[in-house]
Each structure stands twice: as structure tokens, then as C-alpha cells.
Amino acid sequence: MENVFSILFCLTLFYVAVTYRVKAYVTILAIQGALLTFLLFIPLLDNFNPFSVILPLTIFVVKGVVIPIYINKIILKLDVKRKIEPTIEQISFLSLVILTIVLTFVFSIYLSSITKLEIIPFAVGFSSIFTGIYIIMFRKKLIVHVCGFLVMENGIFLLSTVVASELPMTIELGVMLDLFVVVFLMGIALNRIKSTFSGFEVTHLDRLKD
């Protein structure tokens, strides 16, 4: 079951790699949030207790609903142009992502021979981290950078669900709170950047140099 959701998660990465629309990124973030929630619900099917529902629900609210809506609001408010303005061709970007996914799978299979490891979620989580970094590297718009950061965070989260010892709930909730505040602050900063530099791209940020 975990593998099914992980594969679906992997498909979202392909979509991120080919799309030109900023809005598609937001949709993907919401879908990823929902997939992560399902992933957390799977162990609850066997032994249900009302207390352990809190975490998946929080994840769903933060990652699946609040953050996508917030980013969408910023996009509308700041009137971001709908295209993402990549710095490299989409086809090369897609090839890069595919290559990364293949390599992480091969690497995870190799690692699974030395330690016990769930190959598919581990590899997908890592691919997602890399894809997030690529988005930050190869896109000009700062709002897309924020989306890339969140894709990366989702990858880390997927990774953490397959790692043996689970973090206690207070800490997971703390992580969610931190993530939410980061995105919130980035939103405010973007707002300021738009009004200060009358632009929205990473090329505007070149005042500070050695």
C-alpha cells in the first residue's frame, strides 16, 4: 500500500518537471500533501486510536490545504505571470529528473543490500528532494523557488515516514508549525520584494556581493 502511494508521489514529480504553469505547482503541492496524509493513515487501518489521527489531520490541513491556498493567494495578489520562466529547456529538465529517479532507485537497491530498507518510498523521497533542489536551481521566479523548497520538504517527510524510529508527535507538530511559519514569512518577504524591486525574479536579488 505504501508503495502505491509512493509511486503516485513519484508521478507528481514528473508533472512538476514538464509543466509550464505556476498554478500547476500549487496543485501538485496540494496533491502531495494529500498523498502524505494517506500514507500516514495506512498504519491506522490495523489499530485505530483516536489520538493518532491528530498528526495526519494536521499534515493534511497544513500541507494539503493551508499552504497551497496561501501560495495561490500570493500568486493572485502579486499578479505573477502564469509561466514559470525556466533557465533550461523543459526537455532537459525532464531528462534530469528521470535520470535522478533512476539513479536514486539503483542506489537504494544497492543500499538495501547492506541495511534493511523500504526501497520505493526511500528512493521516491530522495528523488523528490533532488527535484526540489533542481526547481530552485533552474527556475527564475522566487515563488517557484518556494514551491521547490516545499517539494523538497515533502520528500523529506516521505523519507521520514519510512525511517524506523518515528519522531514523537510533539516534535512532528513543531516541525509542521516551523514549516508553516517559514512559508508565511517567505510570503511576506515576496510581497515586499515585489513592491521594492518591482519584480519577482531571482535576477533582481543581486545587490549583495563580496
Binding site: M152, V182, M186, F197, L205, L208
Partner: peptide, 16 residues
């Protein structure tokens, strides 16, 4: 402007 850029970079780089 400088402070804004510094804050953005700090927030982004350190969060990463």
C-alpha cells in the same frame, strides 16, 4: 533593499 535581499537569502538558504 539590501536588508530585504539579505533577509530573503538568509531565510531561504538557512531553511534549506
Amino acid at each position: 533593499e539590501e536588508a530585504l535581499e539579505a533577509m530573503w537569502k538568509y531565510l531561504f538558504v538557512v531553511s534549506l
